[in-house]
Deep mutational scan, measured.
Amino acid sequence: MATGGRRGAAAAPLLVAVAALLLGAAGHLYPGEVCPGMDIRNNLTRLHELENCSVIEGHLQILLMFKTRPEDFRDLSFPKLIMITDYLLLFRVYGLESLKDLFPNLTVIRGSRLFFNYALVIFEMVHLKELGLYNLMNITRGSVRIEKNNELCYLATIDWSRILDSVEDNYIVLNKDDNEECGDICPGTAKGKTNCPATVINGQFVERCWTHSHCQKVCPTICKSHGCTAEGLCCHSECLGNCSQPDDPTKCVACRNFYLDGRCVETCPPPYYHFQDWRCVNFSFCQDLHHKCKNSRRQGCHQYVIHNNKCIPECPSGYTMNSSNLLCTPCLGPCPKVCHLLEGEKTIDSVTSAQELRGCTVINGSLIINIRGGNNLAAELEANLGLIEEISGYLKIRRSYALVSLSFFRKLRLIRGETLEIGNYSFYALDNQNLRQLWDWSKHNLTITQGKLFFHYNPKLCLSEIHKMEEVSGTKGRQERNDIALKTNGDQASCENELLKFSYIRTSFDKI
């Protein structure tokens, strides 16, 4: 039985969820670079991206490699990797027998973001014989899940209580170790020597080791999670996991709180800001991140802002960003909400898709409305799209047979046209069989910064309504002859009103 693990408890099935942008060198404390989270699957090609990484700022997932063999891993080693800020997950990587050479110096898994409450997941690794993470000293947050690894031993010899604050939620089941077939031998045991430290858990006094050649490092209890030197002297209180010299914040392997210019500090002093819960960055760093993602459509890219001495992905609820200094300031009234469309555009074809934009005031991208039916549609669209004030790209209304009016965009005031449909149009209306009105132009103002209007096959939309939009939106004169079809717009509506004058002759039985 794995020490510190839980057996036999019912657990939810383990679901495996399925960018080499360097964020800056980590400095003297770390020998390499800070790398983003990685999802490495199918083959070993991307694994080489770990070569210079000291910190993975995010998670590391290595999974679904069915053609790899043990010899493929023999020359692979990433000794610079010290810390993973989120979680480490391995799933069905064939041929991998140990992690001792792959990650010989991995010391800390912070667990800032977890995989279903777990910071370390080893699942269905069919050839893994031992973990071998002999320098792993601290899992700051989260638990361990090690399950269905039929060859995995050296679990009962690990004292997880020396690595985690609590072992109650560890789930370590259905491994070879369960069948008591392992016969784990710690260093020196074969020669009758006791080389590794022994600890007591559940009444068992057991030597602690990761492999037959690597003991588990056990520091004096007084050192807590700070770690200790090879001689057993406690590291500085700002260290986490390990250090090369005692009581020196510049000799830590990793930091308990924050890293700044080669030393570990309790908090980031001005003019620095907390970033990702582990390091200090200056304003320029946060500003660069903001600008890199301002026009990016890459998933996970955030326009970072500053709030409460932190550089964070977005302002919290009730705050909006001051564009001059990136500071989050309290909103006066309802907060603006910028919604970034991942692929640059979004099609609204149902109430469900409209709900995804609920509360958005600025759309960074283009909207395509293609709704053919739905219950209580006008009210639903207004509830979900009615706060949109600005669209950076274009607005396209296409084959939306259920629409009679666009009044559900009740606050839309600006279409920038930074991206144009077919390279020309910022407003595009095609084949809307029941569209009769755009907006009530006596109450609604709309500016279209650039781009043209396109109207074709809107049989109940009168040309007068379209011409009014040209005047109000500032697009009059931009359109070419064929942009607004004269014969297919309003051709099934009563669009022309003329005053009919009647004269009559009164007659009676005795007068003409």
Rank of each mutant, 00 (worst) to 15 (best):
L60D: 01
Y272V: 02
S323A: 12
Y273S: 04
I306P: 02
L90V: 08
V167R: 06
L29C: 15
W278Q: 03
L240H: 14
K100F: 14
I40V: 15
H214M: 13
R110S: 07
I146Y: 02
N150S: 10
H302P: 07
N202I: 04
T211M: 02
T320E: 07
L90W: 03
T320D: 09
L60V: 06
I84K: 00
E97H: 09
G188Q: 10
K193S: 05
G241Q: 05
D178L: 13
K80F: 04
N195Y: 08
I306M: 04
R41I: 06
L99C: 03
C264W: 01
H127F: 03
A230T: 04
R279A: 08
T250W: 03
R141H: 12
E33R: 15
L106V: 02
N325S: 15
E180Q: 13
C328H: 00
P316R: 02
S237T: 06
E207R: 09
K80S: 08
Y304W: 14
N295L: 13
D39P: 00
I163A: 01
E147A: 11
F103G: 00
Q61E: 02
R162N: 14
I139H: 01
L29M: 12
L50E: 00
Q204G: 15
L99M: 10
S166Y: 09
C219T: 02
I158W: 05
E130A: 06
S112W: 11
E238D: 11
K100E: 14
A156W: 06
K148H: 15
H48M: 15
N195M: 11
T229N: 14
H59R: 08
R145A: 14
P336E: 07
G142H: 01
P36L: 08
N52G: 15
I201C: 14
P187L: 12
S323K: 06
S324D: 15
I122C: 06
W278P: 02
G241P: 01
P31F: 12
N43W: 06
S324E: 04
D169I: 10
N135G: 13
C293Y: 02
C234G: 01
N42R: 07
S237Y: 12
N149Q: 03
H28N: 14
N309R: 09
R263H: 00
T157Y: 11
T85E: 03
D247V: 09
I56Y: 00
L240K: 04
F91H: 08
F283R: 13
L99Q: 00
G142M: 01
D184P: 04
F73S: 03
L29P: 13
V173M: 07
T157F: 05
E130G: 05
N308P: 01
I163P: 00
P187A: 13
V167L: 04
G227F: 05
N42F: 09
G192P: 07
T140L: 06
H48E: 15
P316T: 01
V200N: 14
K224M: 04
R141M: 07
S98M: 02
S112L: 14
L164S: 10
N43G: 10
N242M: 08
N149M: 01
C335I: 03
K193L: 10
C311F: 01
F258P: 00
L164T: 11
P246Y: 04
T140S: 08
T157P: 09
R145I: 06
D261V: 01
I306S: 02
E238N: 11
T68N: 03
D247N: 07
L240F: 04
G203C: 05
L99Y: 01
L152Y: 01
N175R: 07
T329W: 06
G142F: 01
P79Y: 02
N43Y: 05
L289Y: 15
W210E: 15
H226Q: 08
P79V: 03
T211Y: 06
V305E: 02
T140W: 04
N175V: 03
L164P: 01
L136A: 01
L233Y: 06
Y171W: 10
Q299M: 08
D288R: 14
L240W: 01
Q276A: 10
S225I: 12
C280S: 00
R74W: 05
I158N: 06
D177Q: 07
V55D: 01
